[in-house]
Design a protein around this nucleic acid. Structure first.
Lengths: 132, 132
DNA sequence: CAAAATGATACTAATATTGTATCTTTTAAT
DNA sequence: ATTAAAAGATACAATATTAGTATCATTTTG
């Protein structure tokens, strides 16, 4: 099982690069060069990030991308949410009749606890922390 | 993202039931009745558990399944290993040239740490702890 | 021998992941 | 105004994983 899928990972790298670039706009071509992601896939990822207001995009000849906010405020959990959907470690496959004690279910409690731990740890990772 | 897939979950439920049954052999039909899993899917799961020496099986008319070992020693991580393969939260998608500092990669370290936490928590869950 | 159980194994369907391809729109430079 | 270089939108395709089926063989008890 993976915690982070490829698109999230690519997004992280792209954002880290863009963050390092600071004021200069980064183009898709430049990023393809630097991080060796298939171009159309990267473009899709960048578009998604723009739609989610993680990036600002500028069309036209001297266009490109830059961060829409402080890299400290771009958490890796934000990216996981966008590309993988929210973590739901605990998805019980059993209906009420089968699991009458759902509220007291030991397994559920444990998994919930684990999800909490993971979320907490992930929230401590942001783009700024990756480029130092 | 899920931490536990359906087959693992089904296996847990089946094992919990079998553990409660103690000495009596449990048949697939009985389990289908109790836990409402599609019969062929359950059979496959039981066969896999038997192959991995989690269950002992007895063929023939009065046959069925029973635990092959102390339910305290059947950890949920064993089942995850069997049905989902080992957890590898940290699967870096970048080759050496792109990530020269793999050993010092902050992201890798973080994810490794998270994997450690999760594994530790999971190891504290066993079949015995689920049937009390 | 017949019925009730599991063993082995191959196949199928649905979903998620990892991409591609193509056409449109915007903008800067000439 | 035209052109080229950028991003936007959107539909399609390949692959892998998850979830489940189907079928036949083997073993055991009565």
């Amino acid at each position: 099982m993976k915690l982070i899928t490829r698109d999230t990972d690519y997004a992280v790298r792209a954002l880290a690069f863009i963050a390092k670039n600071k004021c200069k706009l980064a183009t898709a071509s430049e990023l393809v060069d630097k991080i060796k992601i298939p171009r159309p896939f990267l473009r899709k990822i960048l578009q998604i990030l723009t739609r989610h207001k993680i990036l600002l995009s500028y069309k036209g000849v001297c266009g490109g991308f830059r961060l829409a906010k402080d890299p400290k405020k771009i958490l890796i959990t934000d990216l996981i949410d966008i590309f993988q959907g929210r973590l739901r470690f605990n998805e019980c496959f059993f209906r009420k009749e089968l699991c009458p004690n759902r509220r007291t279910c030991f397994l559920k409690k444990k998994i919930d606890r684990i999800e909490g731990l993971v979320t907490k740890e992930l929230k401590s990772i942001n783009i700024a922390s990756l480029i130092k």
